[in-house]
Design a protein around this nucleic acid. Structure first.
Length: 354
DNA sequence: GATACGTGGCA
DNA sequence: TTGCCAAGTAT
């Protein structure tokens, strides 16, 4: 149980602002309604992990139309789920999403646990998502701390400790300003504030409802908070990808290993990605190498993928597991962005050859 | 605690 | 153009 402290003014000011200016988002119940659907709250929170609202909206719409309930999602085929997630990134989320739906359907009768502890035990639900679902879907006074809340709280209290070491301090401060009632609205209001007013760069302090509560506002540079440690430089890697097209308009696609980078996703056959990758093609054939490699930036390295193209007769197949995929349906293959771009480059080249 | 894990928008 | 950053989780 939280003790009502000296910071209740902050929650009051923020909720008053939220009642007037809350963003209308597809996963939010309409104003005045308290009918937040735990399935939709959970799905949106998983999609929003490290991902912008603008990127999530079309995926959320597509998923809820195709799979309206957690039981429906639990019945999805792995390949269909992964293909539907393609392009959104962090594909472990999609694998855990399906695992979580199946646990909820099989072990909880299709009803999400309502407590942080119960939610935290499910695949893909960490401290943040457990607190967010408990607060937003079930009205519990959970302390919800995401990157927005970290930034807002670091500024409200002008916390000088650099991230990530400041996490415990920030979490304690967040707990002190979280209200006993309307904790879900409070959490969403903090995130709205962080996304639209208390932004990482050039915060709009002039229209901020918490301006008079904010210690950073009284400093010369509010945007200097939160303090962050310098990041390590991102290494660069090289790789090779092979576009194997058959005379009847199909391309050879493989599925990547279940774990690791782009785990479980359809892909072009490719080499390892390293400073000096093995460039041996998967089969002996006449290869054309595209002049411009596909440049792609992952979180922890950047990549130049050199794309090689060949055309095979009908009676030749590459070694190993894979599938011939019709070229006119390449958009439905669910290729992650790197391979979608490689496919676009290869098909453009093939058209020029024809 | 540190690292692996995608992608796109913005300055 | 290049770097920063985003409703984090798993190991």
């Amino acid at each position: 149980m939280r003790v009502e402290g000296t910071h209740t003014k902050i929650a009051g000011d923020l909720l008053a602002h939220y009642d007037l200016h809350a963003r209308r988002l597809p996963w939010r119940a309409p104003p005045g309604s308290n009918a937040a659907d735990p399935y939709r709250v959970w799905l949106s929170e998983v999609m929003l992990q490290q991902t912008t609202v603008a990127a999530v909206i079309p995926y959320f719409t597509k998923f809820t139309e195709r799979w309206p309930t957690v039981d429906a999602l639990a019945g999805a085929q792995d390949a269909d789920l992964m293909a539907a997630w393609a392009g959104l990134g962090y594909y472990a989320r999609a694998r855990n999403l399906l695992a979580c739906a199946r646990v909820v359907a099989a072990d909880h009768g299709g009803a999400f646990p309502s407590t942080e502890e119960g939610l935290r035990a499910l695949p893909g639900i960490g401290d943040y998502t457990a607190a967010a679902v408990a607060a937003i879907a079930f009205g519990h006074s959970a302390v919800v701390v995401d990157a927005n809340v970290e930034r807002v709280v670091a500024r409200l209290f002008a916390i000088e400790t650099p991230l990530p070491a400041a996490r415990p301090e920030i979490r304690a401060a967040a707990g002190r300003i979280t209200p006993d009632s309307r904790a879900g609205d409070f959490a969403q209001a903090m995130m709205d504030l962080g996304a639209t007013i208390c932004t990482p760069r050039n915060p709009a302090c002039g229209i901020c409802p918490l301006r008079e509560d904010c210690a950073a506002f009284r400093t010369a540079d509010p945007a200097a908070f939160p303090v962050r440690l310098a990041k390590k430089p991102r290494p660069h890697r090289l790789g090779h990808g092979w576009w194997i097209e058959r005379a009847d308009g199909h391309v050879w696609l493989v599925r990547r290993p279940a774990k690791g980078l782009l785990g479980g996703m359809r892909a072009l056959p490719s080499s390892d990605w390293s400073a000096a990758p093995d460039a041996a093609p998967p089969l002996a054939a006449g290869w054309t190498t595209l002049a411009d490699p596909v440049a792609h930036v992952f979180t922890h390295f950047s990549l130049n993928l050199t794309v090689h193209v060949t055309h095979l007769p009908l009676d030749v197949a590459p070694p190993g597991d894979g599938e011939w995929w019709p070229l006119e349906q390449i958009a439905e293959a669910g290729l992650p962005t790197l391979f979608r771009r490689a496919a676009e480059a290869a098909m453009k080249e093939s058209r020029q050859d024809a």
